[in-house]
């Protein structure tokens, strides 16, 4: 690696430094746009007691769900979980903690975390169980709760194309939480389907500027579909 070149050649190198007890922020929504090979690398490393911040926790046997198999996750911060039986079991057995967070608040917590904003007020969740213990303030006659932002030791991100400098473009709705996750990691690792030379991507089309990216790796992806819905005509 030299200068702005972020490319690493192995998944070991991509996730080097991840240790027990760290917080990992992961992009993806359902199984769409998830950094599936970086997750697989975390499984291979066997690190434990992780706090994982991600909208969902994959499914049994795929995505973040595979990190449950060896009980590597201690706490999930998500808006919707329970697409996997193992998650349910570990939650009921008290082996796994979950902090349910409204989807928009979760996205904003990552965005704010990456943007150096420690907390923000939102009307989302006021008067509900998730407001318990949180500061409330009134602005223009409406009540808002104070939500703290999130940063992680690592952020793991799935992009479509990137140049060697780590400028990333996402494809379709595989974008989802990835751009915010990319900003919120002390070490941000991005895996992509194609890496090109600097100058080959149109600067106006970049979703994640390379300044946020520490390591970049070329991967191949299964892209499993969670709800395969088709029309017949």
């Amino acid at each position: 690696m030299s200068g702005f070149d972020k490319v690493v050649s192995s998944y070991e190198e991509a996730m080097a430094g991840l240790e027990d007890g760290m917080t990992v922020i992961a992009g993806g929504f359902g199984l769409c746009g998830i950094p599936e090979n970086l997750i697989a690398q975390i499984k291979r490393m066997g690190v434990k007691d992780l706090t994982v911040v991600s909208n969902n926790c994959g499914v049994d046997g795929f995505g973040l769900g595979i990190l449950l198999e060896d009980k590597q996750i201690r706490k999930m911060v998500s808006s919707y979980v329970g697409e996997n039986a193992l998650f349910e079991k570990q939650l009921l057995d008290g082996e796994l903690e979950v902090e349910l967070t409204p989807q928009g608040t979760l996205a904003e917590k990552m965005r704010a975390g990456g943007a150096g904003i420690p907390a923000f007020f939102t009307a989302t969740g006021f008067g509900t169980p998730i407001a318990e213990g949180k500061d409330v303030r009134e602005f223009n006659g409406r009540s808002y709760i104070l939500e703290e932002s999130i940063t992680g030791d690592f952020a793991i991100v799935k992009g479509w194309k990137a140049d060697r400098y780590g400028n990333v473009i996402y494809r379709h709705t595989a974008q989802n939480f990835n751009p915010m996750a990319a900003t919120a990691g002390k070490i941000t690792v991005v895996e992509v389907e194609e890496i090109v030379e600097p100058g080959e991507l149109d600067p106006t089309q970049i979703h994640t500027p390379g300044i946020y990216v520490d390591r970049l790796i070329l991967g191949s992806f299964e892209k499993r579909i969670e709800q395969r819905t088709v029309r017949t005509v």
Partner: peptide, 24 residues
């Protein structure tokens, strides 16, 4: 297309004039 789903995680399509953006 596995990269194009809705909030119910179902595969969908876009109409002409659609836009795609981050969850934030």
């Amino acid at each position: 297309d596995a990269d194009l789903i809705n909030a119910g995680k179902q595969t969908v399509t876009t109409i002409a004039g659609a836009s795609i953006f981050s969850s934030a």
